[in-house]
Amino acid sequence: MEKETLRLLCKVNQLALTEEQKDSFLKFMDAREADIKALDAIDTENVERMVHVMPIMTVVREDVEKKLFTRDELQKGAPETMDGYWQVPRVVE
């Protein structure tokens, strides 16, 4: 992984990593990339796609409306809010 890619990932995910942590993470990612590339050698022709690692199915719930949280509770940790909206940097020109 490129250093620049990691910098962007940290930015969008709001992660503050030290230089040491960044180096360690880049090494870790390079190793994983090598592991994944090893899989390319396997012939997967005619192998049915695995939808989940465990042979289990989802549970479903009934269509019942419930109000479990107030807006104020949810916005407690928000850096910026305005009139009940989350406020973010302008995304269009």
């Binding site: 409306e65 419930k66 109000k67 479990l68 949280f69 807006r71 949810l74 009940g84 909206y85 989350w86």
Partner: peptide, 17 residues
């Protein structure tokens, strides 16, 4: 999730984590 799917409403009133 179980939040209301109704159209409209006050902003961020039909939300949960």
């Amino acid at each position: 999730c179980s939040c209301s799917a109704k159209f409209g409403g006050e902003q961020n009133d039909h939300v949960c984590p």
